[in-house]
Design a protein around this nucleic acid. Structure first.
Length: 261
DNA sequence: TCCTATGTTGTCAT
DNA sequence: AATGACAACATAGG
């Protein structure tokens, strides 16, 4: 699920459910998602979450004791706030128990996600060379970063050192809306085309957040709205949307509409 | 049985 | 040294 708009939904959900409550206990069901730092995470018992911040697909939370929790959701992750009297959600890997009888589960089915304490947001972002968030990055910085990449445009958009938050469906939608073929050589694109990509990126993310990241609620001229089936037709020309593999990721595009550069 | 899935990273090659 | 290509990770559904 989680690209930038989905993680933004998780952030809002987290704010509505988990802020300002005393953490009375923590359960870790799988050491892998905490990177072996079980003791460190357990040190949050008695603390409380005070403020969340999203950067790309990363969700950071500051605690009252000035610690920084990081959650990344991988390909299959989410948060689930539930009454402690009912069953623990399936695939819950870490559970925060609060004083008043409700729990927050960090759920990660395929366990590609990670949760744990970091030395701080800025430090973490620097260490991992993560670029500015896709909704924050200035156009000139985005275009300069793209120009330096030798890979195809789709892979460049997925590169979190170019900008943070674009994932597989957003990349496909950006290139579909910009009418640019995903395998186009990034350095062949003109300033005007790169600018169009930037504008589409912002527009698509904004719209996705507006519809609360519900795919079926996206505009009818978005190919993402129709899911990842082999039967989708291009909303523009009615030709079938083709599936290929680009940079190791399933990629959907309209061959007639999207020009190869 | 085989392939795919809204992500990142370690390894190997260039 | 730095960058790029690609398999690997773990689980379920078609």
């Amino acid at each position: 699920m989680p690209e930038l708009p989905e993680v933004e939904m998780f952030r809002r959900y987290f704010d509505e459910t988990a802020l300002e409550q005393k953490i009375s206990d923590i359960q870790i069901f799988h050491p892998k998602v905490v990177g072996g730092q079980e003791q460190l995470l357990m040190s949050l018992i008695g603390d409380r979450f005070v403020e969340s911040q999203r950067w790309g697909k990363n969700l950071f939370v500051q605690t009252g004791a000035n610690k920084t929790l990081l959650m990344h959701f991988g390909m299959t992750g989410n948060l689930d706030y539930y009454n402690s009297g009912v069953d623990t959600p399936k695939y819950a890997r870490v559970v925060f128990e609060f004083d008043h009888g409700f729990n927050l589960a960090y759920v990660s089915k395929r366990m590609f996600g990670r949760i744990g304490l970091t030395s701080g947001i800025i430090q973490y972002i620097e260490d991992k060379s993560i670029a500015p968030d896709a909704m924050e990055i200035p156009e000139s910085e985005f275009i300069d970063a793209l120009k330096r990449k030798k890979k195809n445009i789709k892979s460049a958009l997925l590169d979190q050192t170019v900008t943070a938050g674009v994932g597989n469906w957003i990349a496909d939608e950006i290139l579909y809306q910009a009418k640019i073929h995903p395998t186009s050589v990034t350095q062949n694109l003109t300033a005007k085309q790169l600018s169009a990509i930037y504008q589409e990126m912002r527009e698509i993310i904004e719209v996705a957040i507006d519809v609360e990241a519900v795919r079926e609620a996206l505009p009818s001229h978005y190919i993402t709205r129709y899911g990842r089936k082999s039967t989708i037709q291009c909303p523009g020309c009615d030709q079938p949307i083709e599936r290929t593999v680009v940079g190791g990721r399933g990629t959907y595009a309209c061959e007639p509409c999207q020009v190869q550069f």
